[in-house]
Write a protein that binds this DNA or RNA. Structure first.
Lengths: 243, 243
DNA sequence: TCGAGAATAGAACGATGTTCGAGAATGTCA
DNA sequence: TGACATTCTCGAACATCGTTCTATTCTCGA
């Protein structure tokens, strides 16, 4: 990865060679391991084997570092959605195909937030300003346009979908984050459920009734179920069915 | 508000009398004005007219302070939803009345995030562990149960709704936050649109086509439109219509 | 060979969250 | 009333972080 460096025979301290890609990759590694708070510029510099000040030559500050790391992962998810084999399938009506497009893109981003627990929250922090976030929004919007929706329906629907994705993903990440890692999935879910059951069983009767449902649930299925609710509403708007 | 205090005639420095409610109220004021980053414990102590260390007697740290402030606002929104005059209306079927319940609660929380721009993001950070967040979730879940949905549908639907609310609210808050205040609403929207139009007009053709739509949009209407998409999907699940 | 720009390095600064112990106010009991 | 414990206040001190600044090293072309 790093270009060959002829180390001087004297005992001068080694000099690191950095690049923006390397910095972002290492930052993502630390973020996945220690979370947003665990990422410090000193820790990053140490992990890179370089000095603290050097990072500022590539990046304006921690905020921009987070933005770029976030944007790179959104871009990767977008590229993965592009090369999805299900993208080539052309069955169904135009509306159904467009809805499947939205579904595929949304799922690709959700998968990325599952692999990087800090990503969803950071997406909310920085908004939709970064280049790949705009591309993501553009692609969802085009699919809604292909469904034949009103301009207003396209606009409202696109923000509804992107808001749902980031919102549910962030919610799940927060839930999974407070659970103890280094533990099996059922154990983690059990921990969280115990926290619920500790509350008043009559005031929180419904939550209590959901305990078993939560123990056997899967984040991806849950996400897809809610997404399909939105999509069915959009499809119905497109096909002009009455309520 | 503060109990009468006989100030000693000598020149001893005045001693402040605090309370948790007062601390939270002042914290919310600062948060509304300066955002989460603008809230510092020193600034809070100064605004309270007290010492820095005193805050730690009432609160374990900044995280808990944020949690409590957040929870108090969720509780206020919930109480407001309870006393909503539309709650007493009993028209329509059971399913329609339950859907209206969900709508009313979701809108109450959304209104609160509009008045406190930092709230939505903080809701995402701390997850659904705080007491009033649980109550909020419980109330949505009960309404979905009243619609006659499956346990799984109740579970998936409740997280879909709560995730949508927090997600869209956080997205809108991030958007409004990066715009310059001290400026009229149309001017702010114009600023944001200009940022979009600065991008490539062919790669981002759809976003360009949404410029006019965005200039004339209203956050509350946009939020309601997406929420109704979700609700219509839930109602259709409850009434057992086929896709 | 030399000089200008690219890139690295780390000390120093200011701000922040948190800890800690001393002290003042308040209430209690003999 | 006086002594004691508890509750509450206060700010110095500490550790850490993001950022700035400047000196230094490396690279490459003239």
């Amino acid at each position: 990865m790093t270009p060959p460096r002829h180390r001087s025979p004297s005992s001068k301290p080694a000099r690191a060679t950095l690049s923006l890609e390397q910095i972002l990759a290492t930052a993502v590694t630390i973020l996945d391991r220690d979370g947003i708070r665990g990422l410090t510029l000193r820790g990053l510099a140490q992990e890179l084997g370089g000095g603290l000040g050097s990072i500022y030559w590539y990046v304006a500050g921690k905020d921009e570092l987070l933005e770029l790391a976030c944007d790179s992962l959104v871009g990767a998810a977008l590229a993965r959605a592009e090369s999805d084999p299900t993208a080539a399938q052309g069955g169904g009506t135009d509306v159904e195909r467009a809805a499947a497009d939205v579904r595929r893109i949304a799922l690709a981003l959700f998968d990325q937030t599952q692999q990087h627990p800090w990503l969803a929250l950071q997406l909310q922090v920085q908004g939709a300003g970064s280049p790949n976030s705009l591309r993501y929004w553009e692609r969802i919007g085009r699919a809604l346009a292909a469904m034949g929706l009103t301009a207003r329906q396209q606009f409202d629907g696109s923000t509804a979908v992107s808001g749902y994705v980031a919102g549910v993903a962030a919610q799940m990440a927060a839930q999974d984050l407070q659970a103890d890692r280094e533990r099996s999935k059922p154990e983690q879910l059990g921990e969280i459920v115990e926290g619920w059951l500790a509350n008043d069983p009559v005031e929180f009767a419904w939550i209590h009734s959901m305990a078993e449902e939560f123990r056997t649930h899967d984040d991806a299925d849950q996400f897809t179920a809610g997404l399909d609710l939105l999509l069915s509403g959009l499809v119905r708007q497109a096909t002009g069915e009455s309520g």
